[in-house]
């Protein structure tokens, strides 16, 4: 394995990490502020991707597709919050798990009903297709590089939002004492809807961006949701910083493990065995990473006691 190939894989890992962050950030924010575990977050990711694919097919514009993804996911998020989720804040986690599991069933089947079971495809815009030559001579796809940039920019924006703006202060206050900020005149239920819609928009945005490299299909959200859970367990619930660190760690471990592990096993195994065993073990790596973090820090790298 050459150094160039290795660096390329590091970039791939970073790219999948920042996209994972967008999904995990909403999830951790919703848990931190409302104390709600939302399994249907993956459905919002899927809704974003489908909205983008449908609008791109109708108009041919990638920009419009992205706007559609953001709008559709945020609207679906706000609607679901007002109709269902709102009733779950005071319930225990079991009720939240079941109700949001029911939402997955409804969203997935409704999407299958409207769009059918076949995957849709979303094309990369012309301006971002092709590849660029990076310093050191790596040819890297322009689109993936753009994803890294967009993801990091959004992460920075989110940090700014949480730590510097009025909304961010309200969100952090909501995390620590809900009654107190309600008493201070903040409209809690509006704040909750807003936070939920924000998380949904981030997930839908990630779904649309990733949908252009993978296919857009029913059930695409749940593997991402479970990965986002791993990210949150590693990073610590409620921590945006933890979500970013966890997401990049998971992205890098997953990508590099898939490439390096078979290579390493080839040193003392037949190549075909090494490929099989390596890929099987690589699929377990991120969960082993999670297990190690759990043993070392049961509440995640940046988490407080839940």
């Amino acid at each position: 394995m050459t150094l160039l190939l290795f660096l390329e894989q590091v970039l791939n890992g970073l790219q999948s990490g920042v996209m994972l962050f967008l999904t995990a950030a909403g999830l951790t924010l919703v848990f931190g502020v409302m104390g709600l575990i939302n399994l249907a977050h993956g459905s919002l990711y899927m809704i974003g991707a489908f909205a983008a694919a449908a609008i791109a097919a109708a108009t041919g514009s990638f920009t419009l597709a992205i706007i559609a993804a953001l709008t559709a996911a945020a609207a679906a998020g706000a609607l679901v919050e007002m109709v269902v989720i709102r009733r779950l804040y005071t319930r225990d986690h079991l009720d939240q798990v079941l109700a949001t599991f029911a939402l997955i069933l409804i969203f997935s089947e409704a999407t299958r009903w409207v769009f059918g079971s076949f995957p849709l495809y979303l094309d990369i815009p012309d301006a971002l297709s092709g590849s660029v030559r990076l310093p050191g001579g790596i040819e890297y796809p322009r689109y993936r590089l753009a994803l890294i940039a967009v993801g990091l920019t959004l992460a920075a924006g989110l940090f700014f939002l949480i730590s510097r703006t009025r909304l961010g202060i309200q969100i952090r206050a909501g995390e620590s004492d809900r009654e107190m900020i309600a008493a201070l005149g903040v409209n809690i239920s509006k704040l909750y809807t807003l936070v939920f819609a924000l998380g949904a928009a981030l997930a839908g945005f990630a779904g649309a961006l990733v949908g252009a490299i993978q296919s857009v299909q029913v059930g695409m959200g749940e593997p991402v949701l479970i990965l986002a859970f791993v990210v949150i367990v590693i990073g610590g619930i409620g921590s945006i910083k933890g979500a970013l660190v966890g997401a990049v760690l998971v992205g890098l471990t997953d990508t590099l493990g898939g490439v390096l592990l078979p290579e390493a096993l080839r040193l003392f195994m037949a190549p075909s065995d090494a490929a099989a065993v390596g890929s099987a073990l690589a699929s377990m790596l991120i969960y082993l990473l999670m297990a190690v973090v759990l043993i070392w820090r049961p509440h995640g790298l940046y988490g407080m006691r839940a």
Binding site: V230, A280, S283, Y287, L294, I295
Partner: peptide, 29 residues
């Protein structure tokens, strides 16, 4: 491993470990 935590962590971790077996079964030829 997962009983070291509780509540919502426990839900996420058990789900994640099951997914590990799922991917292992898929990639073990």
């Amino acid at each position: 491993l997962s009983l070291r935590t509780s509540g919502v962590y426990f839900i996420m971790i058990t789900l994640a470990f099951a997914q590990m077996f799922y991917y292992f079964a898929i990639s073990w030829p």
